Amino acid sequence: MVDLPGMKLLVPRHIGDDRGYFAETFRADLFVEYCGDFAFVQDNESRSARSGTVRGLHFQSEPHAQGKLVRCTAGALFDVAVDIRSGSPTFGQWAGETLTPENGKQLWVPPGFAHGFCSLEPDTVICYKVTGYYSAECDKGLRWDDPAIGIVWPDAADPETLSPKDRGQPLLADLPEYFAWAV
């Protein structure tokens, strides 16, 4: 359930028959109307071979902050975002959603949120559009299991799958102020 200001759950309509379905997974005009005027500059994809693979929580700081429009094209994943906008009424709160090719759900994670996910099936593929190019110097993160945030990860979540980078991410309390709440 998405209830953090700025985040949106999009569910494109699937038109189907016994052969399968057709869906418009992105339309710029509808996206601007529903989420705001953001331009996407890059598409990313990652595959998690094992069920329970945890990736994140990631974000990019200014001047290369990224918004992400996330969807699952194979398998299933539990997608999470954490509000890290200083002064936000929902600072440190999280929202999560299960994304699958069958449910077609997409999560809009605007700049100012840390993002991560857990694969729920082997060979899960996540695809996401971003509003800023990758920048190594602006690549930041937040600890996936910070007790102050209290993300309720699926039982499948396996800490052994974390990358060395993700194992060393800071707690929210130790995170510098990268984003400020703007009304």
Rank of each mutant, 00 (worst) to 15 (best):
L57N: 03
R13S: 04
A65C: 04
D146W: 08
F78W: 10
C138F: 07
A28G: 03
S48H: 07
G20R: 14
L175R: 12
C138M: 12
V2I: 15
A148H: 14
W153F: 07
P170V: 13
G141T: 02
W181P: 00
A136D: 14
L30A: 13
D123W: 04
I84R: 08
R85D: 05
D83I: 03
P176M: 04
A23M: 15
F59K: 00
P154G: 01
R143Q: 10
D155C: 04
V2R: 10
W153Y: 14
V41K: 04
F59H: 01
E97W: 03
Q60T: 02
G75Q: 09
A156L: 14
F38H: 14
P147I: 00
D83T: 09
L175W: 10
A114G: 14
G36H: 15
V130F: 00
V54A: 09
A157I: 00
L4Q: 10
E33T: 11
D83R: 13
D29F: 03
R71I: 00
F31I: 13
A157C: 11
N44Y: 09
I151S: 04
Y21R: 09
V32K: 15
A182N: 14
V130A: 12
C118Q: 04
Q60M: 03
S86A: 15
F40R: 03
C35W: 14
S61H: 07
V41H: 03
P111R: 02
V32D: 11
A173G: 04
L120D: 12
L69I: 04
D18C: 05
S51N: 08
E137I: 06
Y128I: 07
K140H: 15
D145N: 15
S86L: 02
G52Q: 09
P12M: 14
A182L: 03
D29E: 15
D83C: 00
S119V: 02
F113G: 05
M7V: 13
R71S: 11
T124F: 04
M1I: 07
G96L: 01
G132R: 06
R71Q: 13
A148R: 13
N44F: 01
D18E: 11
D145F: 14
P176A: 11
P12G: 12
V41M: 01
T124D: 06
F117R: 12
I84F: 12
G16W: 10
F40E: 12
I126R: 10
S119R: 01
A157E: 01
T124Y: 03
E102T: 12
A114E: 07
V41I: 09
D17L: 00
D158H: 13
V80I: 03
W94A: 07
Y133D: 11
T90W: 03
I151R: 08
A39I: 13
E137K: 10
I15C: 06
L162Y: 06
P147R: 00
W144T: 00
D29M: 00
E45C: 10
A114K: 05
C72K: 09
G150H: 02
V70R: 12
L9R: 06
G150W: 08
P147H: 05
D145M: 06
E160H: 14
H58P: 04
D18M: 08
E33D: 14
Q60Y: 06
A173P: 00
G96Y: 01
L77P: 10
W153R: 02
V130L: 01
A74D: 11
L4P: 08
F113E: 01
T53Q: 11
